[in-house]
Simulated scan of single mutants.
Amino acid sequence: MSNRRHRSGTGRYRDQFLHSPAWHARRARWFRTEHRHHGTLTCAGCRRPATESELELHHLSYRGVTQVGGVWRAFEAHRDLTAMHPWCHGTIHRIIDRDHGLSHHRTRRDATTAAIRTLQSKLARGTEEVAG
């Protein structure tokens, strides 16, 4: 299985699931749990504090995302989601997409962890071409 981000307009996940009531409810639950356990929200990519409205959630695993009878279900484990600023989230996907080992030969969780380390290392060095 590939970890590459599919840009086609026919992607049910991006075109349907991310707009579903199930996803919006799951996203709200994830942020409530984070607030309760950690107080401050932080981007997993750049490690900067942020508000819920400034962050997106990245899936480390799609287990729990199902469609039953045409209705989306969002029962991802809390640890299968991580918050990121949109720029960091997009950069993580670009890092994964451009690295054959990450995009084809690693689990999604391992690929994301490696991409986050790459992003954080480049940000620490002040590198502008983070996804290059």
Rank of each mutant, 00 (worst) to 15 (best):
H93W: 03
K122E: 04
S103V: 06
R36A: 15
A25V: 01
I96F: 06
E129F: 09
L102T: 04
T107G: 13
T51Q: 06
I116E: 03
A124Q: 11
A44D: 11
Q120F: 03
G45C: 05
R47A: 15
H6T: 09
E76Y: 00
A83K: 12
L81G: 08
L119F: 08
T113C: 02
S2N: 06
G39S: 07
M1N: 08
T107Y: 02
H58M: 05
R109D: 08
E54V: 01
T113W: 00
A114D: 13
W72G: 11
D80Q: 06
T10D: 08
T42E: 02
A131I: 00
V68T: 14
R47K: 12
H35N: 03
K122C: 00
E56H: 12
H104R: 08
D99N: 11
P86N: 07
I92F: 07
S103A: 15
R4K: 12
T10F: 06
V68H: 13
R98N: 15
L60A: 05
H105F: 15
R5M: 06
R26N: 03
Y13W: 15
P86V: 03
R47W: 05
R12T: 10
S121P: 00
L41C: 03
C88P: 03
A77Q: 08
C88A: 04
V130E: 01
W87D: 14
I96D: 07
T118K: 04
W72L: 06
H105D: 13
R32M: 03
A77R: 10
C88V: 05
L60E: 02
K122A: 06
C43Y: 06
R48M: 06
G64Y: 11
G90L: 09
Q16D: 13
L57H: 02
G45D: 12
H85T: 13
H93S: 02
H24K: 15
C46A: 08
D15W: 06
C46S: 08
H100E: 15
S53V: 10
L18Q: 11
A22D: 07
G69W: 09
S121Q: 10
A28E: 14
T112Q: 01
C46N: 04
R48L: 14
E52M: 08
R73H: 14
Q120T: 11
D99F: 00
T112S: 11
H38W: 01
L41Y: 08
G39M: 10
G64Q: 13
I116Y: 01
R12H: 10
T10Y: 03
A115V: 00
S61W: 02
H24F: 08
T42K: 13
G9S: 13
H89A: 10
